[in-house]
Design a protein around this nucleic acid. Structure first.
Length: 423
RNA sequence: GGUGAGGUGGCUGAGUGGUCGAAAGCAGCGCUUUGCUAAAGCGCCGUACCCCAAAAGGGUACCGAGGGUUCGAAUCCCUCCCUCACCGCCA
């Protein structure tokens, strides 16, 4: 949520930053300003009436204790009470309208973000490693999975419909090994506190991390929208401190969590339905940081580096792209995507998205920290996948396949997996 | 699921219709006394919003949330949420 004061004081700045997203949200600014002006007018009037009532009611109390007659004053207060009831109604309506508008306006992209309209304009920031070379034909993860019986999408469909995977045998073990490997890497070597949060969250949490109200159709909700299956561990983990005032000395907070992620993927039916690239439930290890505002961009680089370390440790070629203003997510000011190379599909697959939300989520969650001088401020929140699993799984088996259709297990993973190859 | 007890400021904890944003204690900050430490004394010490060009200052709201009763609600009534205890059920 943007700061209404920023909008009030620098509307042109806000409009021009929003305009770089190319989705027309800057047109909502005039409406917000109008509602804000109306709201404040109502509030000022309401406060005046409240002050009058408070004062006169006290007079009644004093008069009664003396035994004086005060029917006239009581009548006046009663009339003021009617005015107040009406103003309260109007003020509440204006507040709600303002909040609804604000909740639907995206974050301002970072001034340094590359301006562009679509994903095609996302610049490559750096690449690591090289594409593996193969002498013979290259199988994709679907062929390898079938050959080695790593997963069973047909039976998963029988259970849950299309878009679900059931890992089996060595595939299930590899999935588990990857999760354990990543959790250990981040908690032991990168200083994150491991948490295992609930996968079901209340509606307020989904609003806090910006999945709602705009993207409800992508979420699995139930109990009339009161509860949701978390689409990412970002939701339960970032909301851990919602409505809290942290001590400045506690920052930065660094959390790592493994959770399954549930997404309807509404509107993407038919796209990438083969294999395990786009599914309704997938595993992910997520990194979250809560930082001081002035540190957040350095922390963002560090968090991205932590996610990259996963791919480096596994010896997988990848590239880092920065999302342009037209592609950056609703709540994010700046995002790097990590894309791992998939030899079987001859393309890069997004396995991580590392974002700095600045104070956009903190303001929605009312998450604050107390400065040494006692002033409360909104911290910045960041998160990034470290990393998402089915795609990592796919890239890994494709990159480490051998001529006979077996798959070598990367050295760092062998202890977790318990073998050097899958055949 | 049942029964009971509760939700008050960073914490503990008073307050059962008015002058209460709320006693007191602890913690924190500042000052004084003081070889050091300790102790004592004095003062300050919630959040959000509104008015004001800003500061100074003023005001309103907030005692789990939302409604109601009343001239007036932390206090009375209703609904909901949550916590704790015991019982039941259960991986």
């Amino acid at each position: 949520m943007l700061d209404i004061r920023l909008i009030r004081e620098k509307p042109d700045f806000v409009r021009s930053r929003l305009a770089t997203r190319g989705s027309g949200e800057e047109q909502k600014i005039d409406e917000v300003l109008a509602v804000d002006a109306e709201r404040r007018k109502l509030e000022t009037a309401l406060q005046q009436f409240n002050a009058d009532r408070k004062r006169l009611s006290k007079e009644v109390g004093v008069a009664r204790s003396r035994g004086d007659d005060c029917a006239e004053v009581e009548e006046r207060v009663r009339k003021i009470g009617d005015e107040i009831a009406e103003l309260v109604r109007q003020t509440a309506a204006a507040e709600e309208q303002q909040r609804d508008l604000l909740l639907n306006i995206p974050n301002l992209p970072h001034p340094g973000a590359p301006v562009g309209k679509t994903a095609a304009e996302n610049p490559v920031v750096r690449t690591w490693g090289e594409k593996p070379r193969f002498s013979g034909p290259v199988l994709d993860h679907i062929a390898l999975g079938a050959k080695l019986q790593l997963f069973d999408t047909e039976r998963a469909t029988k259970l849950s419909g299309s878009g679900f995977i059931c890992f089996t045998g060595a595939g299930a073990r590899l999935e588990r090994a990857l999760i354990q490997f990543m959790l250990d890497l981040h908690s032991r070597e990168h200083g994150y506190l491991e948490v295992s949060p609930p996968f079901l969250v209340r509606r307020d949490c989904m609003i806090g991390t910006t999945q709602l109200p705009k993207f409800e159709e992508d979420m699995y909700g139930f109990e009339d929208g009161a509860m949701f299956l978390a689409p990412t561990a970002e939701v339960p983990v970032t909301n851990l401190h919602r409505e809290e005032i942290l001590a400045a000395s506690e920052l930065p907070k660094k959390y790592v969590a493994y959770t399954p992620c549930f997404r309807r993927e509404a509107g993407s039916a038919g796209r990438e339905t083969r294999g395990i690239i786009r599914v309704h439930q997938f595993d992910k290890v997520e990194l979250v940081r809560i930082t001081r505002p002035e540190d957040s961009y350095a922390e963002h680089e560090a968090l991205t580096a932590d996610a990259e370390r996963v791919l480096q440790s596994l010896g997988l070629h990848y590239r880092v792209i920065e999302l342009c203003t037209g592609d950056v997510g609703f709540g994010s000011a700046k995002t790097y995507d990590l894309e791992v190379w998939s030899p079987g599909q001859n393309t890069y697959l997004e396995v991580s998205s590392c974002s700095n939300f600045e104070d956009f989520q903190a303001r929605r969650m009312n998450l604050r920290f107390k400065e040494a001088e006692g002033k409360n401020r909104f911290p910045h929140t960041l998160n990034g996948s470290g990393t998402a699993l089915p795609r990592l799984f796919a890239a890994l088996v494709e990159a480490y396949q051998q001529a006979d259709g077996s798959v070598r297990v990367p050295e760092k993973l062998q202890a977790y997996f318990g073998a050097k190859e899958i055949r």
